[in-house]
Design a protein around this nucleic acid. Sequence first.
DNA 1: ATTACTGCAAAACTTTTGCAGCGGT
DNA 2: ACCGCTGCAAAAGTTTTGCAGTAAT
Lengths: 157, 157
Amino acid sequence: MPESAEAKRVYRRLREEDFKLTRQRRIIVGTLLKHEEEHPSAEELHQLVRDELPDVGLATVYRTLDLLERLNVIRGVNFGDGRTRYELTSDLHQHHHLICGRCGTIEEVDEDLLGDVEDRIADATGFTIVDHDLKIYGVCRACREILEESRAEEDEG
Amino acid sequence: MPESAEAKRVYRRLREEDFKLTRQRRIIVGTLLKHEEEHPSAEELHQLVRDELPDVGLATVYRTLDLLERLNVIRGVNFGDGRTRYELTSDLHQHHHLICGRCGTIEEVDEDLLGDVEDRIADATGFTIVDHDLKIYGVCRACREILEESRAEEDEG
DNA sequence: ATTACTGCAAAACTTTTGCAGCGGT
DNA sequence: ACCGCTGCAAAAGTTTTGCAGTAAT
């Protein structure tokens, strides 16, 4: 597996801050990038990492995630199941989550819709904005159709 | 303590869905509304609730939070410390969080800035939007000033 | 009167930490 | 060779669950 430009960028960040680039860290970073869209939890990432290097400990995964979070490479998010899931903070990956309250599906919108909202907030508060995370709650199209059908049936019955 | 219109709205929701309105639930709801802006965790809420009714169990607090979350009255959010914190989902309480990556302060912006963003997303995806949660990451004004000062000192030294 | 709800204690689960040895620089 | 990093196992912290008794309808 050739290492992506993205992975190399992370390695550079590590070296910049005088952290060692170990086999474990390389594989954890690579696996995280590869499975980015799944928003893996620590435990899930650990399983994936073990496919490649079987005796990596779970504690190492946690420690690496902490480290990457401190370096602002990733960020922990909460989708409401019991565990913390991770996503990249890269500007190249700005996206928003649409969370369906009925079926729990998470869709992504890959567009930066918030440029002028950020500007307005920065002006009003003096806050220097680095990144954002927008979650939108509602009902997805499929569930909405199901709900409309069952309502129609009730009206008949 | 007279009960707010907001609290009564929650009680009505409970009755609508055939849940019992117990002393514990009344006090948990009241305490949650009162300490809304603190985004209490289950444990913190438990402490606050015990001031009023000392032998409420922590499990009851968890069970009530679960229930209120299923009824879409509150929502769990993750601010990066180990525990789930809660906020109301009411339209009347739309606000956004500015999270400073240096000092960890969370400021709130109490304005609905996302009306047209929501419209665009709804049009593009067919998603029926009920609510949203926007977190903005960056550096607050105070920290920014501190950073600028220390940079100036480095340049001198 | 019925049965959902509660408190308590135990269990399950997620995350952190201590320590002796290993491995990147 | 140094010292940061790792695996393991134990600890800490958070959330869930079983059960017998209590209270809202």
